[in-house]
Design a binder for these strands. Structure first.
Length: 650
DNA sequence: TACATACAC
DNA sequence: CATGGTGTATGTA
């Protein structure tokens, strides 16, 4: 490893996240792309920081290498026994009884923009700004333009690149249309972002006596007919594999992996580990440089070394993935663990300016917390220096806070201790939320939430989703351990009683939601859509930002197709059994009132929000937790509680 | 608890 | 000119 050819071809040693091949990048002149990226980056503060990080990674790799070199034959035999045991245990837990479909929209944001403005068709398009691109269409990808790449570099690669700023309200509108289709195949589908979702199609296949391939074709056709957008799908016995499969024939394609161990092993064996969700640039680098691992098959072969170098958690993740195992259950919902707000600005050391930024961020965070009725007791200040170094400073309080004043006073103290500094980003995060059963009010809120959630997560509203489950989301970490993520672990958890929910697991798959994005894919990424705030935010927050979606796009709400299948609210996804007649009426009234209010105060949303923490139910994403609030007044009577499983809250 | 990392999207 | 924002998990001290 060392210095490859830094002298002759320096660009080869500058590795960025967006230089990996993804879907649509086949005919790209990779060397030219790499060279342009290097030339445009060289000498910048960002570049220097990347070099510094690479140097640390190199040291870490060398340490691990040395650790391997010290292993004796005996050590290796010992670790091999441990590895073999884990492999047997994991294999014994293999579940081939489910059929999961992962749906991934093709270049989602860019596709929506082209649909909205047909004159963009055929032109290379990037959604985002000169600083950052969220998604590029396939025309642009031919030039090496990709999500997560700064716009000014993309323009160098493709001088005729057309830029369109993000319009999240549009993406949410189209995303909702796709979710209406998903719901017909799996009412409990898991939306991980605006453009991705996991559907358990086991029952659909069984009940209709059709193959998973037919279901995938039908679903993709339905999405195309109803949205004029294309998507790719992957079908496999678990979510981890389904996700990998949806990338195989992208765009506008599908790949079905049968529920047969032999087929799975043949598929996974030659699969580059980087294709697996949870294995990112760093983990890939470490496994390749330290152990020569590039594929899942090699990961199994080197399992003894993995056991010698990583934590149990990480080992389980690696072994599971190498065997093609993954989560097969539908996760329960989980509660939000933190909420944050951060902003990048042109670097400055002007303290009054920095305190002003802090004020804005505290205000933003406080507003978001009010929307979900959250009170937290740990505040974390995040700083990024002008040289891109990131620092965090945390403080835990005795009492739970939410107001801008409380947040700002503590944040100011934290910041003051760090100055003087030249900064380019300031962020605030609150965590350790009050469990409050009713922090704000209605005791029922939570309950309801849970309900809601059940639906799919995502989407809707309230829900949060996220968490629970498993899959992918998280990642493992690397270091020396990573944890696994998904599946594997999950199996056990999954098998527990869903009723109690455990939440332990969390996250994962589901999560997507929050972010917005859509990105996806291909190997790593395709689009990234960044954004952030949850969908809900969008709705709510939009306030300031967008004009109110509904006014522009008839979102679901306007359609008022309130009760899907007679029990699922089409606006927020909440489920109320048919017998809850009164409650449903109230719930409908709530949405109606909400819409009316919004219209009245289209421009005052922010104010509105502050006054009523309620959030409109809608939002989606949010994670759970308090979000619930949404329930409208309906809560009055409703003992709905017992319908949900309630979790713990943490 | 505090902080740093990795990762997803 | 110019390299994002939100959330979760884990390791380590």
């Amino acid at each position: 490893m060392g210095t490859t050819s830094d002298g002759d071809r320096p660009w080869e040693s500058y590795h960025t996240v967006y230089t990996n091949a993804k879907a649509g990048m086949d005919g790209v002149d990779k060397e030219r792309v790499q060279r342009v990226i290097y030339e445009m980056s060289k000498g910048s503060k960002y570049f220097e920081n990347e070099q510094r990080k690479e140097a640390f990674l190199k040291q870490r790799i060398e340490r691990m290498h040395a650790q391997c070199a010290k292993l004796t034959t005996n050590d290796i035999a010992h670790f091999q026994m441990i590895a073999d045991k884990r492999i047997l245990e994991s294999e014994a837990a293999r579940d081939l009884s489910k059929i999961w479909l992962h749906s991934d929209m093709d270049a989602f944001y860019a596709a929506v923009e082209m649909l909205d403005n047909p004159s963009l068709k055929g032109k290379p398009l990037a959604v985002g700004s000169m600083s950052m691109i969220c998604t590029a269409n396939y025309e642009a990808r031919k030039f090496g333009v990709r999500a997560a790449m700064p716009g000014f570099i993309a323009r160098k690669l493709c001088p005729n690149l057309v830029f369109v700023p993000t319009n999240f309200d549009k993406y949410m509108y189209y995303s909702e249309m796709t979710r209406k289709v998903f719901r017909r195949y799996d009412p409990y589908f898991i939306a991980t972002s605006l453009d991705e979702a996991y559907l358990n199609i086991t029952d659909v296949c069984k009940e209709r006596g059709v193959s998973s391939q037919e279901v995938a074709e039908e679903l993709r056709n339905a999405i195309f007919e109803e949205t004029s957008l294309t998507c790719s799908a992957g079908v496999a016995p678990n979510r981890l594999l389904a996700k990998v499969c949806s990338d195989i024939n992208k765009p506008n394609g599908q790949f079905i992996l049968p529920n047969e161990r032999k087929a799975i092993m043949a598929f996974i064996s030659s699969l580059p580990i980087r294709k697996i969700g949870g294995i990112g640039k760093v983990t890939e680098h470490i496994l390749r440089d330290v152990l020569g691992i590039n594929t899942c098959e090699e990961m199994l072969k080197k399992s003894a070394y993995l056991c010698a170098l990583f934590s149990p958690c990480s080992i389980d993740f690696f072994i599971s993935a190498a065997l093609g195992l993954g989560s097969t259950d539908t996760p329960q919902f989980s509660l939000r663990k933190s909420m944050s707000s951060e902003r990048t600005f042109s670097g400055t050391e002007d303290q009054s300016l920095l305190y002003q930024k802090l004020d804005e961020i505290a205000d933003s965070l406080s507003n978001d917390m009010q929307i979900e009725s959250l009170f937290g007791r740990t505040l974390t200040l995040k700083l990024k220096t002008a040289s891109f170094e990131v620092r965090t400073r945390a403080l835990s309080l005795q009492k739970y806070i939410q107001s801008k004043e409380d947040i700002l006073s503590h944040a100011t103290r934290l910041l003051k201790a760090e100055l003087p500094l030249s900064l380019r980003l300031i962020g605030l995060r609150m965590s350790h939320f009050r469990d409050d059963k009713h922090g704000s009010g209605d005791p029922m809120q939570k309950t309801i939430t849970s309900f809601i959630f059940s639906g799919d997560a995502s989407e809707n509203v309230l829900c949060d989703n996220h968490s629970a489950g498993t899959d992918t989301s998280d990642d493992p970490l690397i270091g020396n351990d990573l944890c696994f993520q998904d599946d594997q672990n999950v199996p056990s958890l999954g098998s527990r009683h869903p009723e109690l929910v455990d939440e332990q697991c969390f996250n994962n798959d589901v999560d997507g939601w929050k972010k917005i994005d859509g990105f996806k894919s291909s190997a790593k990424t395709d689009e990234m859509e960044m954004y952030s705030r949850t969908e809900s935010n969008v709705e709510v927050n939009e306030t300031g930002k967008f004009p109110d979606n509904r006014a522009v796009y008839p979102s679901t709400r306007e359609g008022l197709a309130f009760w899907i299948d007679d029990y699922i609210c089409s606006l927020c996804g909440c489920e109320l059994p048919p017998s809850f007649i009164e409650e449903r009426q109230e719930h409908s009234d709530y949405h109606l009132a909400e819409m009316l209010q919004k219209e009245e105060s289209t421009n005052n949303l922010s104010k509105l929000m502050q006054e009523r923490p309620i959030d409109k139910g809608s939002s989606a994403t949010g994670t759970s937790r308090k979000r619930q609030k949404s329930s409208p007044k309906g809560s009055k009577h409703i003992p709905i509680d017992f319908f949900f499983k309630r979790n713990k809250e943490v």
